[in-house]
Structures are given as structure tokens and as C-alpha cells.
Design a protein around this nucleic acid. Structure first.
Ligand SMILES: Nc1ncnc2c1ncn2[C@@H]1O[C@H](COP(=O)(O)OP(=O)(O)OP(=O)(O)O)[C@@H](O)[C@H]1O
Length: 872
DNA sequence: ACTTTACCCGTTTTT
DNA sequence: CGGGTAAAGT
């Protein structure tokens, strides 16, 4: 065993070590909560199998949930067992692995090795076309059917291993029947164009091993990460891979199953115990990621799932800063707070925290808009981690279409796109004619077109011959280049030169410059696929058949379809010091020092169209458990939805937390100072920053909190006059006008603001000089108490209880002040000048009180929000 | 075949 | 509000 591995083994706790070194012959399930080191254990186990049990890396199959997770594991293994060994591993997602298997052995079940992977967009287009035939029928019966609906039904069926015939047999109504029919014709269409969709990769993978189980003979050990989110096809595949050697290790956490909508089935955990009766279970109960407070709040959320099995999970870290539960008037306010708060934490941590340490996790991508704008306004570098958006852009699809066509001239989606880029006046009609002619001659569309070009075939009815004088030679040149082993970047360069693609973009796209940059980025991305063919470790060939070639072009195209982002190895190190915006789903398995979860409102969390509320709750749990040191959960009382500003209420997942656990959240932004930062450093295992710097930043940021008008967007006049009057603590009941400050106000704002006036109207903002440097108490007496039940209807009031004085007490100024005075005394005793964030915080780097910034007047150089890339 | 304009609809999550 | 589409016009 090498030193690196033994060093890592030493860091493991006893259970983890037991899991890593567990007898490979005995199937293993590692079931454990978030941050317990499951992935670390799985990775170490792979290394251990190679180094200690002398398994050949090429005989090990390690399955991750995402490509990203695969690269991460690959990177870690590079360190543990070296690149030489790591690159031989069969490591990837189920989909990527199946693609490999099918390229190699697809002939066994009648596939060619040249199949193209059809992405969801193209699938949808195919369905849309097929659906047209049913227009009349649907209208006559007053039914509607969306392509997306059809697609997800088909996808669901495939994930469960159901054929179109199965679906047809169990159809209960017309819609079901039509869907089943569409499923059949869709399958046929894909077959004709020699394409597989994502689900097909699994379906055919399973079919392959069904037909020829011995093809799994190479597989000495299967390891599966995120096992709770495998669907039944994936599970079958795992069984098939393990069928011969019966060596399986999986890790998972039922509480983190969030892909039920994609037919994932937690039941696979118990299924596995039945399939492998000798299966050993190991539970890990130590959390190494988060502070006690974050873990406590997360568990309080997930524990509301009554059907859930309680399990123990404790952290070795300190209790740390309580997660904040904040409320805002509207999404822009929420976003602005988050932006400013990020700056505050960066400053107050003395630079220990940088942009990349922050993540904003959202229920769905559309929510990122406001956040992006707010971050940009504050000049905070950020990136949206969103699916394989990059490959869905029109300029990228254009280039890919040319490349796909080289490899698979039958692939109609690529054909229909490439043939008219740049515009050659070939429209729907002409394309249809070509396709029809091709079909009747049993040729690929490209072959037919070449025939027409060379005069071997007659032209089609809307004449095309004259329009393809450049297209056909280009295609032929590319084909030659590719056959002669031309590198992918060269192919792309040839495409853009021959088509004068830059000019084309300039002529047709208003934002052609960014698009052109994307094309360059694609070339850059393609670079990594020009590896030495020697490096590719082929799977064993079937006797008498040549193993199919995994050409650089095919590898590139495959990766383009399967991968979620363009982040290549080079990219990862440079230019990624950015705040991450991501969906909660995509955040699975990741971790950040600071996590914001905005939009924790009914309708968003749980999402209003999702019946599986428990899964939504788990999703929130997953999001919260990504945080290491700071967690902010927030919601708005109003939000723009469907073009209208609608009232919102806090998520049940928060409001239904039992009273005795309510204190898991602080209804105010945390207090940050040298002591706190020192603790954070421990949690993150980083060197604490210079105390002087922290203290200085702390003073600048925390010595005052400007009046809350500062939060107002000067453009959002409609709210200007709605700042509430006396009943401030009731202001959030939905019938009231919007208010601005987060719950903190009752404490901090009133301390800092010499005119806290919970009465009548708001006085004019005081001048800066009037603002007294004050520090709030870290433990504000009522900040964590739930409202007295007697004071309201059973329904939880959206108004954060922190702003609400105990029932019976009058919400007077003196109540607030006496507490703040106490707090000051306490502070002195502690000798710590901790500061609290307030949403009204001024921008970073300005001396306290020198400048008050309204929104839109950021100091950091205002950049207009970037145009969102239009797709397709 | 392509461009412009006027509605309409309504926000998932991903390999 | 903004994207996507159906109908109109060039
Ligand atoms: N024994 C250990 N000592 C120190 N740090 C550890 C140990 N085990 C795990 N960690 C750290 O804890 C963090 C979480 O580990 P990991 O991602 O493997 O957990 P996980 O169980 O896979 O989490 P999740 O379920 O959220 O995906 C990582 O930063 C990892 O380095």
C-alpha cells in the first residue's frame, strides 16, 4: 500500500475504516447521513481494492451520480493510486458507462457502434412532430397533450423497463393509449436515425447483459454512490454487472433521495438486501462537514417526515453560528441582502472566505435571475451551475450538428439543422422532401443529398441541388478529415471557416460576440479529447468481432451529450473563484462554507406542482446540509410570479417545525467577529485570518446599521410608502403591505437606529453622524422563541416570531432597549466586538458611515446584468 | 423561406 | 415580465 492511501486510511474513523477494508466478497451497504464521508469511503475503498486486494483497475466499475462527481472521484484517485491506474477504472455515471458498453458490444443486440445520443431537446422535437398526427384526434375529444408530458411518460416507462406494448396494455384512457402509440413511433424514429436517448442507454445496457451475461465477466467489483437515487433499470444493471463475481459496495442515504420524479426508488436499498442475503450494513454517524447548529436545523426539517427512520448523526465540530431564518418584502430585497451579506462575510472573515465559498441553492433555475442581477450589481463574480445549458445554445448545437452528421449521417436532427446553417434557403418543405426521398431509397439523408449533388439521383421537388454546392463538399471534407484521425478542434475550425460561421453569427444574432466566444470555448473543450488512443483501455472484445472504436470524435460527441458543463480539468483551477448559483438538485454531494437557500416559501418549497411533499422536504434537507459554517434560509412575503406580484408565505417545512425545536433558527443574520471567525476556521480546517484584519472589518461593517430605507430600490417606488406603522410585528400577515426588513429589525435595527419608532410613521433617516456605533447582543432574548400560541390562529404566522415580543408584553421601545442595553453589558464582559449583519448593510469597503448606498448605486462599478443566453 | 407582430401562457428538478 | 408560438406580412 502506498503512503498516500495509508495516510488517508489513518484519518478515517473506526466505522469508516471498517467500511473501506470490509471483505470485498461480502456485499456492502454504507448507509449514512450527509457529510459522514460516504463518498470519501467509497473512493478509498476503490483505492484499497486496487492496492491491497490487487484488483486490476480495469476490473472495477465505480458508478457516480453525475459526471462531475465522476471527475471529482477521478481526481481524488489520481492522488491515491496514481493516474496510470485511475484512468483504467470503469468510472462514470450509469449512462456514460452504458454508452461505453454499447459502443463495444452493441452489435450483440443489433446496435451499430455509430449511434448518436439524442438529447432531451431533440427528443422533444421528435415527439412534437409525431404529436401533430394526433392533433385532430385530440381536438375532437377535447383533450390536450404536451410533448413534455409525453416525453416524461415515456422516460418514466423506460426507467421502469416498460415497453410501449406494456404501456399500451395498461392504458386506462385515450391519453394513455396515445402516449403508448407515441412511445412506439418515437422508438421507431430513433431507431431509423440510429439514435439512443438517455433512457435508452440504460434500457439497451440492460438488454445487452440480459442477452449476454458473460459480458460482465470482467467486473470484479461494482461500487455505486448515491444509491438511494438509482432507478430500477440502474439497479438491474448493477445486478447484472455483479452477477458473476457478486462483489458490490454501495453508499446512500434514504433521507437524501430526491429523484423520485425520475423513477428513482429508495426501495432498491431493501431490494438489495433481498438479492444479497449476506449483505452487510455499516452506518456512519459522524458528520465531518457542518457545525452542530446547521446539522440541528437540518435534522429539525427532515424529522417532520413521520415515515422516516430516525438515525443518529453527530458532528465533531462546535455548535457554531445558528442558521438564519430571514424574511424579506420581495425577491429583489432578498437578493440584495444576499449579495451584501456575502461581501460582509468576505470582509469580516479577513479574506479567509472568498467568493467560491458561497453557494446560493434554489428550488429551480428560474429563481436565479434576481440573484444574478443582485450579485452583478455588487460586482460579485458568480456562475450558474445549470445542467448542460452550454450545449443547448444555438451556436454550439450548430457546430455539433455538423460533427454528428459525420459520425452518423442518419441522424435527422443534426441533418435538418446543419443543412440550413448558414441559411441556404432550405426550409421545412425541402427538408421533408429530402427525408422522404431518402426513406424511399433506403438511404441516409446525407447519402441522398450527396447523390443529388453528384447527379446520381434526381433533385427533389423544391429544388435543393443548387443550394448545397458548399454544404456537400464541406461534409465530405470533414468526413475525410475524421477518418484520417483529424483532431476534433481541427474539425470544428474547418467548419467555422468553411461556413464563415462568425459572419453568420454577426448577421443573425444580436449577441453574436458572446456566442462566438462560446464557439471558441467549444474548441477549447474539444482539446481534451485528443488523447493518445493508446490511453484508451478497451473493454474485452467479443470473440470474432472487432471491438468498436472509440474515436476522439465519438468520445467528444458523447461527452457533449452526457456532460453537464464544460468545466474541463484546466478550467477547474483557474477562474472559478465565483459564487455558485445552483439548484438544490445539482448541489447534491457538494459542500460550501456558506449556503443561502432563498425562496423557502409555500409553492416553491414544496413546489406547488409536486405531490411528493416528503421528497420536497428532503430536498430542502439536502440543501441545508451542504453548508459547513453558515446557513441562511429565507423567504419573501411577496414575489413576482407569472407576471404578477403575489403574496407568499413561509414554507411549511419551516413553520411546522415543532415549537420546542423552533430555536434551531435565528431570526436574524448572524453575528460575526473574531471569535466566530476563529470557530469557522476550525470547521473549515483553514488557517484563521489575522485578528486585526477581522476586527477592523468587523468595525467597518458592524458598527452601525443604516436605517432600513436604504434597502429600498429607488426604482421600486411602489413600496416606498408602505413601510409599516405601529403593528410592525404583524406586518407580514398577508393582508398587509410589504415591509422590508428581515426579522432582525426588532433587535438590531432598533438598536442602531436612533429612531426605532414602532409607532406611527417612519422618521426621516438620520444623518450618518447620528448613528451610534453599537453592538448587539449575540443572544437576543426573544430572537429564538416561538410566538405564544395563544396570540394567534393555529396557522403559523408568516411574521417571524423574533420581531414579536412575548405575548402579554407590550411591544414598546423600552422592551427593545432594555434588551439592547443588557446586550451591551454582556458584550463587554465577553470582550468581543461581534457584529451582526443587517440587510441594510452598506457596500463593502466603504468606511463606516462615509457613504450610504441605495440600490443601483453600487460602489463596485455597475455592470448591466448580462443578457441571458438564448438557447436553441 | 424568412421576418415581424400579436397574443398567450405560466414558471421544476436531470442523466 | 418574458419566452414561445401562431398568424400575419415581405
Ligand atoms: N474521517 C474524516 N476526517 C476528516 N474529514 C472527513 C472524514 N470523513 C469525511 N470527511 C470530510 O467530510 C466532508 C464530507 O464528506 P463526503 O462528501 O464524503 O460525505 P458524504 O457522506 O458523501 O456526504 P453527502 O451525503 O452529503 O454526499 C468532506 O469534506 C470530507 O473530506
Amino acid at each position: 500500500m502506498n503512503d498516500t492511501l495509508s495516510a488517508v486510511l489513518k484519518t478515517l474513523n473506526e466505522r469508516q475504516y471498517q467500511a473501506v477494508t470490509h471483505n470485498p466478497e461480502i456485499p456492502l451497504q454504507i448507509l449514512a447521513g450527509p457529510g459522514s464521508g460516504k463518498t470519501k469511503v467509497l473512493t478509498s475503498r476503490v483505492a484499497y481494492l486496487v492496492q491491497e486486494h490487487k484488483l486490476r483497475p480495469s476490473d472495477i466499475c465505480a458508478v457516480t451520480f453525475t459526471n462531475k462527481a465522476a471527475s471529482e472521484m477521478r481526481e481524488r484517485l489520481n492522488l491515491l493510486i496514481g493516474e496510470e491506474q485511475t484512468k483504467k477504472l470503469r468510472l462514470g455515471t450509469f449512462h456514460a458507462l452504458c454508452a461505453r458498453f454499447l459502443r463495444q458490444w452493441g452489435k450483440t443486440i443489433g446496435l451499430t457502434d455509430r449511434f448518436t445520443i439524442c438529447d432531451a431537446d431533440e427528443s422533444k422535437k421528435i415527439i412534437t412532430n409525431l404529436l401533430k398526427a394526433y392533433d385532430g384526434q385530440l381536438k375532437a375529444r377535447r383533450l390536450t397533450l404536451q410533448p413534455g408530458e409525453v416525453l416524461s411518460s415515456i422516460s418514466n416507462a423506460k426507467a421502469k423497463g416498460l415497453s410501449s406494448a406494456d404501456l399500451f396494455a395498461q392504458a386506462e384512457n385515450d391519453i394513455h393509449q396515445i402516449i403508448a402509440e407515441l412511445y412506439a413511433s418515437y422508438t421507431e424514429a430513433l431507431k431509423k436515425m440510429n439514435a439512443l436517448d438517455f433512457d435508452d442507454l440504460l434500457v439497451y445496457g440492460v438488454r445487452l447483459y440480459d442477452k449476454e451475461p458473460t459480458l460482465a465477466a470482467w467486473c470484479q467489483h461494482v461500487l455505486v454512490d448515491e444509491f438511494q437515487d438509482t432507478n430500477s433499470m440502474q439497479y438491474r444493471l448493477m445486478l447484472q454487472l455483479a452477477a458473476i463475481h457478486r462483489c458490490v459496495s454501495v453508499v446512500g442515504d434514504p433521507d437524501q433521495s430526491i429523484y423520485g420524479w425520475r423513477a428513482a426508488d429508495v426501495g432498491n436499498i431493501s431490494a438489495m438486501q433481498k438479492n444479497f442475503t449476506d449483505c452487510k450494513q455499516i452506518m456512519l454517524e459522524h458528520n465531518y462537514r457542518s457545525t452542530g447548529a446547521i446539522l440541528g436545523a437540518s435534522i429539525a426539517i427532515v424529522s417532520q417526515d413521520t415515515s422516516r427512520i430516525q438515525k443518529s448523526l453527530v458532528t465533531d465540530h462546535a455548535q457554531g453560528t445558528k442558521p438564519a431564518l430571514l424574511t424579506f418584502a420581495i425577491e429583489q430585497t432578498e437578493a440584495n441582502f444576499i449579495a451584501k451579506e456575502i461581501k460582509r462575510l468576505v470582509a469580516c472573515s479577513g479574506g479567509m472566505l472568498t467568493w467560491k465559498d458561497f453557494a446560493i441553492l434554489l428550488r429551480f433555475n428560474a429563481l436565479s435571475r434576481t440573484l444574478e442581477a443582485a450579485l452583478q450589481k455588487e460586482s460579485i463574480p458568480n456562475r450558474v451551475l445549470a445542467g448542460h445549458k452550454f450545449f443547448e445554445r444555438l451556436e454550439i448545437k450548430d457546430i455539433l450538428a455538423y460533427l454528428q452528421l459525420i459520425d452518423n449521417p442518419n441522424y435527422v436532427p443534426a441533418f435538418s439543422r446543419a443543412i440550413n446553417v448558414p441559411s441556404r434557403s432550405i426550409g421545412e418543405k425541402t427538408i421533408a422532401a429530402v427525408l422522404e426521398a431518402a426513406a424511399s431509397r433506403e438511404k441516409s439523408p446525407m447519402e441522398l443529398l450527396e447523390g443529388i449533388y453528384e447527379g446520381r439521383y434526381p433533385d427533389v421537388k423544391p429544388a435543393v441541388k443548387g443550394k448545397i454546392r458548399e454544404f456537400i463538399p464541406l461534409h465530405q471534407q470533414l468526413r475525410t478529415m475524421a477518418t484520417e484521425g483529424g483532431a476534433v478542434p481541427d474539425l470544428i475550425r474547418h467548419i467555422i471557416t468553411a461556413t464563415r460561421y462568425e459572419d453568420h453569427l454577426r448577421k443573425t444574432q444580436p449577441d453574436w460576440d458572446t456566442r462566438w466566444e462560446n464557439v471558441q470555448e467549444l474548441i477549447n473543450y474539444a482539446q481534451q479529447f485528443d488523447q493518445d488512443p493508446e490511453d484508451i483501455v478497451e473493454l474485452p472484445s467479443v470473440e470474432g468481432e472487432d471491438g468498436a472504436q472509440e474515436t476522439p470524435l465519438r468520445l467528444f460527441l458523447q461527452a457533449s451529450m452526457l456532460s453537464t458543463d464544460t468545466e474541463s480539468d484546466d478550467d477547474r483551477n483557474k477562474d472559478t473563484n465565483k459564487v455558485v448559483l445552483s439548484t438544490c438538485h445539482a448541489a447534491k454531494g457538494l459542500e460550501w462554507p456558506v449556503v443561502f437557500v432563498p425562496g423557502v416559501e409555500q409553492g416553491i418549497f414544496p413546489f406547488y406542482r409536486n405531490d411528493d411533499v416528503a421528497e420536497e422536504r428532503r430536498l430542502l434537507y439536502v440543501a441545508c446540509t451542504r453548508a459547513q459554517a453558515f446557513l441562511y434560509v429565507s423567504y419573501c412575503s411577496k414575489r413576482m410570479t407569472a407576471g404578477e406580484i403575489k403574496d407568499r408565505t413561509i414554507s411549511d417545512f419551516i413553520s411546522k417545525i415543532p415549537a420546542d425545536q423552533k430555536k434551531v433558527f435565528d431570526k436574524a443574520a448572524p453575528i460575526v467577529g473574531p471569535k466566530c471567525i476563529e470557530e469557522v476556521a476550525k470547521v473549515l480546517r483553514r488557517d484563521p485570518p489575522d485578528t486585526d484584519i477581522v476586527e477592523k472589518a468587523t468595525k467597518e461593517f458592524g458598527s452601525f446599521a443604516p436605517p432600513r430605507e436604504n434597502l429600498l430600490d429607488p426604482n421600486a417606488n411602489m413600496y416606498k410608502n408602505t413601510i409599516r406603522g405601529p403593528g410592525s410585528h404583524l406586518a407580514f400577515s398577508s393582508s398587509q403591505p410589504a415591509t422590508f426588513q428581515p426579522a432582525r429589525m426588532a433587535g438590531i435595527a432598533s438598536i442602531a437606529n436612533p429612531y426605532p419608532t414602532p409607532s406611527s410613521s417612519q422618521p426621516p433617516p438620520p444623518s450618518q453622524s447620528q448613528i451610534q456605533p453599537q453592538t448587539p447582543h449575540p443572544l437576543m432574548a426573544w430572537a429564538s422563541n416561538k410566538p405564544k400560541s395563544s396570540s394567534g390562529p393555529k396557522k403559523f404566522r408568516p411574521m417571524p416570531s423574533s420581531s414579536q415580543p412575548p405575548a402579554g408584553a407590550t411591544a414598546t421601545l423600552s422592551t427593545f432597549q432594555s434588551t439592547s442595553i443588557d446586550s451591551l453589558k454582556a458584550m463587554k464582559n465577553l470582550g468581543a466586538a461581534e457584529t451582526a449583519g443587517s440587510p441594510d448593510m452598506v457596500a463593502l469597503g466603504r468606511g463606516a458611515g462615509t457613504k450610504r448606498l441605495g440600490m443601483g448605486f453600487s460602489s463596485g462599478g455597475y455592470k448591466p446584468p448580462s443578457k441571458r443566453a438564448k438557447q436553441e
